Amino acid sequence: MVVRSIARGLFTLAIFAVLSVAHAADRKQILGIFYEGCENLCEGFKAGIKESGFATDITIIDLEQDKSRIPAAVAKAREMPADLVLTFGTSGTLGVIGTLDDVGNPAYLTEIPVVFTIVADPFGTRIAKSFEGSGRANVAGTFNRVPEAINIEIVRQYDPNFNKLGLLYNSNERNSAIKAAELKKIAPTLGVELVALEIDPGNDGVPDVARIAERMAELREQGVRWLYVGSSSFLNTNGELFTKTAVENGIAVVSPYEPLVREHHAMLSIAARLEDVGRLAALQALKILRDGAIPGDLPILQATDFAYVVNMEVAKKLGRYPPFAFLQVAEAVNN
């Protein structure tokens, strides 16, 4: 009887081990590759996956704005192997999947499903073909931006005397350079003079933060009172210094990054909440991993809800209080 009990116990343990291995094999592996860290969007993505009840393990790699780390991240995705890769930011996404011209290039992921997020212009960068589909079998994505013409018109509604817009851009970030070119093209059609300054000309690496104060002083001298953050991981990461220096120079910052208003000294934000964008990315991932959709067959999922946020403390310092009608639709915050 003792022998039978031991045998039965060993058999039960063996079955448990097999089931455990099978259960682990059923869990999908997601690798997040982020150019500048993962906070609200990451939490939204994780929440969306968790609430679905779909079994996954999520691993995060933070590139810390260092493009030299991208090949190792790509190798990690293949080594795991990842069932899906989530990318954050234009530079990181380009490093992981390249452009439409790089399909089949072994330096990029073409065999693993990828969902991109926070890409300022996926079509101008040739990351994707159109909103109808990415144009490549393994790539799906999200889009979170408000059109630049609308951002300019919103500033005009806030300040009827607005006619000059400042812009700092980093040519080492593809998204930042593309947004600068786009604004240079549309600003004159909207009756706005654009003063666009490169943050650190001639520097092929991460710009010197000391250049921020220098460029801000140049903008002030040229009569700029409103500054738009087109798209820049560098400025977003150095948000405290960037926005504080702007206020010191009498310049109001309009940002597509809501945390620059809530946590720093930007005055106005018109943006999709990052947590909501993360949930959109989770929907794309679930369609691929759970429902069996081919990434390239999915439309680029667009954010439809945008929040207007005004930093009232900054508005007070600059003496630019929002009009009453604006406050009817905007959220006022103090920090």
Results as ranks from 00 to 15, higher is better:
residue 22 A to E: 13
residue 119 V to Y: 05
residue 201 P to W: 12
residue 70 I to E: 02
residue 249 N to H: 15
residue 306 F to T: 07
residue 302 Q to S: 10
residue 221 E to Q: 15
residue 47 A to M: 12
residue 31 L to S: 00
residue 234 F to Q: 01
residue 9 G to R: 05
residue 109 L to M: 02
residue 215 R to A: 10
residue 164 K to R: 15
residue 232 S to V: 09
residue 230 G to K: 01
residue 219 L to E: 10
residue 129 K to P: 07
residue 84 L to M: 01
residue 298 L to P: 00
residue 202 G to E: 10
residue 239 G to V: 07
residue 84 L to V: 03
residue 283 L to D: 14
residue 262 R to V: 12
residue 305 D to C: 04
residue 163 N to D: 10
residue 196 A to R: 03
residue 247 V to Y: 00
residue 37 G to P: 02
residue 238 N to T: 11
residue 267 M to C: 09
residue 79 E to N: 04
residue 46 K to G: 11
residue 41 L to F: 10
residue 136 R to T: 00
residue 316 K to E: 14
residue 12 T to H: 03
residue 148 E to A: 13
residue 8 R to I: 14
residue 305 D to T: 10
residue 18 V to P: 00
residue 218 E to P: 02
residue 206 V to I: 15
residue 41 L to R: 01
residue 285 A to G: 04
residue 315 A to I: 04
residue 289 L to D: 01
residue 29 Q to W: 03
residue 249 N to D: 12
residue 311 N to C: 03
residue 163 N to H: 11
residue 299 P to W: 05
residue 220 R to Y: 12
residue 17 A to E: 07
residue 37 G to V: 00
residue 269 S to G: 10
residue 43 E to C: 11
residue 233 S to C: 08
residue 50 K to T: 14
residue 317 K to S: 09
residue 54 F to R: 06
residue 176 S to H: 01
residue 167 L to Y: 00
residue 147 P to K: 03
residue 328 Q to E: 14
residue 182 E to I: 14
residue 157 Q to R: 13
residue 294 I to P: 06
residue 119 V to W: 04
residue 246 A to M: 12
residue 261 V to M: 04
